[in-house]
Amino acid sequence: MTTIRHEAVVPLGAAGRRFDQALAEMFPDYSRSRLSGWIRSGAVTLDGVPAPPRQLLRGGERVQLQVELENEVSSAAEDIALAVVHEDEHLLVLDKPAGLVVHPGAGNPAGTLLNALLHHDPRLAELPRAGIVHRLDKDTSGLMVVARTLPTYTALVDLLSRHEVERQYEAVVLGTLVAGGTVDAPIGRSLGDRLRQAVRDEEDGKRAVTHYRVRERFRAHSLLQCRLETGRTHQIRVHLAHIGHPLVGDPLYGGGLKLPKGASAELAAALRGFRRQALHAEQLSFIHPATGEALSFGAERPADQQRLIDALRADLAEHGSDHY
């Protein structure tokens, strides 16, 4: 259990402000909702006594905050290997393999990234979601950042909400695109299947923007670079399917097997054997919340995606670009 202690004096400029509003400005490392909860619990005092969140201040009061952080996560720690790309006292950057579920849930009560994180650092049990501030789908590989302290958790959530975490992906899709572009289409839960997301109208969906460019074209497929401006569930998968170029292997949004004319047995086997969405989070960049340092990390594409791309390149080399 970790104890948080802070003492401060209410600035004179905060006179007439509500207690909870002023506290959020005095302690920006913690979210407003968390600070309000601490006020209501009596963990924050004004001049030594508890005060309601809406109490108006005169300025100059002495604020004391003392909180015992109890576990917010009840899942068990499990000894699951983690590919740690970067680690310091504030955060972790991980390269998640395809097939690893991020959070425990229905059908996946254990064996998740969260369980692995609790084994790596038991103190993460004191943080919401064990410090996980964003996620990747089970069968998407690549980079994730995880907070190790409550202030870092708050700061990373804020960076994500302001779209100041750059996330770049590599995708293999059906069809040959001539040029890159942007998909700006709201996303919400599908009305026909609760496991799926779908492009919806602005009233029912949340704003979602994906930028993409073509890296390579093959005879019946394309290799894309995708950059998220927003971070909705299944965003890249939904958006690329929406424009008619679903991800190879995608079980929810894919368009099925597509073999170019005269495809070799090797290419047919590579495409049939790729049983997950061909999506890899290859680059992650952000400003370190504690140090202010600009950080950028890369993760090599996984072996199965490399084999798929090699097979597509070999097919193109055999048949030539005139067979698009």
Rank of each mutant, 00 (worst) to 15 (best):
L69T: 00
L69N: 07
L69S: 00
L69I: 07
E70P: 13
E70M: 15
E70F: 14
E70Y: 14
N71G: 09
N71I: 07
E72Q: 10
E72S: 07
V73R: 00
V73Y: 01
S75W: 12
S75R: 03
A76F: 11
A76S: 13
A76N: 14
A76W: 09
A77N: 03
E78F: 11
D79L: 12
D79S: 11
I80A: 02
L82Y: 06
L82K: 06
L82N: 06
L82M: 04
L82I: 05
L82P: 08
L82D: 14
V84E: 08
V85M: 12
V85Y: 14
H86C: 07
H86T: 11
E87R: 03
D88F: 15
E89T: 04
E89P: 04
L91K: 07
V93H: 06
L94D: 00
D95G: 11
D95S: 04
D95C: 15
P97I: 08
P97Q: 04
A98E: 04
A98R: 02
G99P: 04
L100Y: 09
L100I: 15
V101H: 03
V101I: 12
V102F: 10
V102Q: 13
H103I: 09
H103E: 11
P104M: 10
G105M: 02
G105Y: 10
A106H: 09
A106K: 14
A106T: 12
G107N: 08
G107M: 01
G107L: 05
N108P: 15
N108G: 15
N108Y: 14
P109M: 15
L113N: 02
L113S: 08
L113T: 07
L113V: 07
L114G: 09
N115V: 12
N115A: 13
A116I: 10
A116Y: 04
L117E: 09
L117K: 15
L118T: 07
L118M: 13
H119A: 15
H120V: 03
D121R: 02
D121A: 02
R123S: 15
L124F: 12
L124S: 15
L124E: 05
L124P: 11
A125I: 09
A125H: 05
E126I: 11
E126R: 09
E126G: 12
L127A: 10
L127V: 01
L127T: 05
L127P: 07
L127Y: 01
L127F: 01
P128A: 07
R129D: 09
R129K: 14
A130E: 03
A130K: 01
G131F: 01
V133P: 00
R135M: 04
L136D: 00
L136W: 00
D137C: 00
D137Q: 06
K138L: 08
K138C: 15
T140C: 13
G142A: 02
G142N: 02
L143P: 08
L143R: 15
M144G: 14
M144P: 11
V145H: 02
V146E: 05
R148T: 00
R148D: 03
R148A: 00
T149A: 03
T149C: 01
P151H: 08
T152S: 09
T154S: 07
T154L: 11
A155E: 00
A155R: 10
L156S: 00
L156A: 06
V157E: 05
V157H: 07
V157T: 04
D158A: 15
D158C: 11
S161G: 10
S161L: 14
R162V: 04
H163M: 12
H163C: 13
H163S: 10
E164P: 03
E164L: 13
